[in-house]
Amino acid sequence: MSGVIGFLRRVGSRTVDMVWRLGFATRFFGLVLLYSGQSFRRLHLTIREIYFAGVLSLLIILVSGLFVGMVLGLQGYETLQRFGSSDALGVLVALSLTRELGPVVAGLLFASRAGSAITAEIGLMKVTEQLKAMDMMAVSPIARVVAPRFWGGVVSMPLLAALFTAMGILGGWLIGVVFIGVDDGAFWSQMQAAVDFRYDVMNGVIKSIVFGVAVSLIAVFEGYDCTPTAEGVSRAITRTVVSSALAILALDFVLTSFMFRGQS
């Protein structure tokens, strides 16, 4: 009996806790937007963060994109040739990448490469009282530290996703056309005929923007909100990666069901 009550109490306090944090995060998001002016007026602050979030993630994004595309090429060919339609390999690779794999996998990689770094940096600044010192110097840490990192992430993510997708298509082409010998013309022309710019490419880009906002917000929030100890920072980093992954997958489901509902 007491076990049941204890369990219920834990569930209850967890729920209350979660709602609290959600409320905090929303308020924090509002503050970040409110204090974003500086990130645009003093562009070099944001450019610096684009370097850390975007440029430093390039390598992992390009390499993983290439490999995911090559695997898609191999597996897709394997399946398609059973139905005698290996010419459609380009379509398969391009559609799966532009619509789903590009934004989602790039988002997951971005969360673990750049999101965790943002959380760690802000968290450590909190531990070493740098945020308090800044606040004491009449410089808002949200405007000076948080907002540029947020916007750096928001700008980087769609570009990284586009690079991932493009790299993946090249990888699929490499395997399909260069190594297996699918017809080059068929590969590209079928792809072009089946992939619509507005419907497939743009929706993928919109997804990547949404994921960029979500991951960047989670990363800066977890860093800013962490318990200011070494353990608190490490836990915040873990939370960033886990919540980002969950957020990406959940948002992907929601967006997909809106974007591609009952159509082709």
Partner: peptide
């Protein structure tokens, strides 16, 4: 606060900036 200066107990220097930029920080911001 612009007219206050505080030396923090553990320094609280900005670790992503050089010594020069740390001291220049309040000047550049304000």
């Amino acid at each position: 606060r612009r007219r206050m200066g505080m030396l923090f107990q553990f320094g609280a220097l900005f670790t992503d900036m050089s010594v020069f930029d740390n001291v220049a920080f309040p000047l550049r911001e304000h």
